[in-house]
């Protein structure tokens, strides 16, 4: 497979081009299908395949920026952005991304045994907490879905609205497009935290920003989606730039992944039309837990096994989505023929 190797001029190493495209492709399919970016696969995967942690994060953020342009085009020019909230999202996210990047660069100056820097284990343990936490939450969500549906139906019958908690520390801000008045600190807290996660872990942060926009800030869902995209676009651009200034973005690797991600995203988005049911979420939860397991394996020195686990989990998930997409497409064709 050496003929597939490409030389990455900034990371100064040979890397299998097919693996780069496959990582991007998997992220694209998962992101397109589940609606969250899926970039949390990229940083661990690049690190497992030999990228130093700072390069993995910088390169991931560069690819996230390129991908967010593609996503923005798909969502048609961000028609649902609350511009005032969007501007504050840029301010909060940029400060957060820079803070996260500064922590990574600081950790990258601290050498530990084995030639690695402190950034490696700190980010890997953070990923383990994030991925295992998210995966277990999704398993719990899946296991209790019937119970919640029954509770929701009962609440709707009684007509009770869930109490909304708000932190009203002044100054208060009003966002007419979303129809909300909320503390400046809640807004800045949400965007700073998600920006920090972007800069620190190399993720888009949509999986936290989206629920926070809806449940904590109180945005309508459509505006939350548009404003999240807007935020990722600028946070990604800033992350790409600041990691570029710090000299840890391998642009060639980012372009390979972006090509894979764009193709994958088209398949993922198309699959949404054909695949129904909650069962696929169970597979997604298992995939997240396997990604967490691969990070743990890397941390404990089992790099080859970690590589197999992360790529096996991601590609299996993609294969299942594509197989279901194909089956759904054939079924639709057969029904059309029958009519």
């Amino acid at each position: 497979m050496e003929f597939l190797n490409v030389y990455l001029p900034i990371a100064e190493q040979n890397f299998n081009g097919l693996i780069l495209v496959a990582i991007g492709f998997a992220v694209g399919v998962l992101g397109g299908f589940f609606g969250v970016g899926g970039a949390w696969v990229v940083t661990p995967a690049l690190n497992i395949f030999g990228f130093p942690m700072a390069y993995a994060i910088g390169t991931d953020l560069a690819h996230i920026f390129g991908k967010s342009i593609v996503a923005t085009a798909k969502h048609r020019k961000m028609g649902n952005v609350d511009m005032k909230l969007g501007i504050w999202s840029i301010i909060g996210s940029v400060i957060g991304v820079e803070a996260g990047a500064q922590v990574i660069m600081w950790l990258s100056t601290m050498k530990i045994a084995g030639g690695d820097t402190l950034a490696g284990p700190v980010v890997r343990y953070s990923y383990m907490i994030l991925l295992f936490g998210l995966g277990i939450y999704m398993l719990y969500d899946y296991a209790t879905k019937d119970k919640r549906a029954a509770a929701k139906a009962a609440t709707a019958t009684v007509g009770m609205a869930a109490p909304k908690k708000a932190w009203n520390l002044p100054p208060m801000m009003h966002f007419p497009a979303s129809g909300i008045t909320i503390s400046f600190w809640t807004v800045m807290g949400v965007f700073f935290f998600t920006g920090f996660l972007s800069g620190f872990l190399g993720v888009g942060g949509g999986f936290i920003r989206m629920p926070a926009l809806i449940y904590l800030i109180g945005c309508p869902t459509a505006i939350a989606v548009g404003t999240d995209l807007f935020s990722v676009l600028f946070a990604g651009a800033y992350g790409c730039w600041t990691y570029g200034v710090k000299g840890v973005v391998d642009i060639v690797a980012a372009i390979y992944m972006l090509v894979g991600a764009s193709i994958g995203a088209q398949i993922g988005v198309t699959a949404v039309k054909y695949i129904r049911g909650y069962g696929i979420r169970l597979l997604f939860a298992i995939m997240i837990i396997l990604a967490g397991a691969s990070v743990a394996l890397k941390q404990f020195g089992l790099t080859t096994m970690a590589a197999w686990v992360v790529m096996g989990a991601a590609m299996s998930m993609c294969a299942i989505i594509m197989a279901k997409l194909w089956a759904g497409f054939k079924k639709e064709q057969a029904e059309k023929m029958a009519h």
């Binding site: 560069a62 967010s68 342009i69 593609v70 790409c240 642009i251 980012a254 372009i255 972006l258």
Partner: peptide, 15 residues
């Protein structure tokens, strides 16, 4: 950094 940001944006747009 400017080159990387511009190229990623342009490549994303083209794709």
């Amino acid at each position: 950094a400017i080159e990387v940001t511009v190229i990623m944006g342009v490549v994303g747009g083209i794709i």
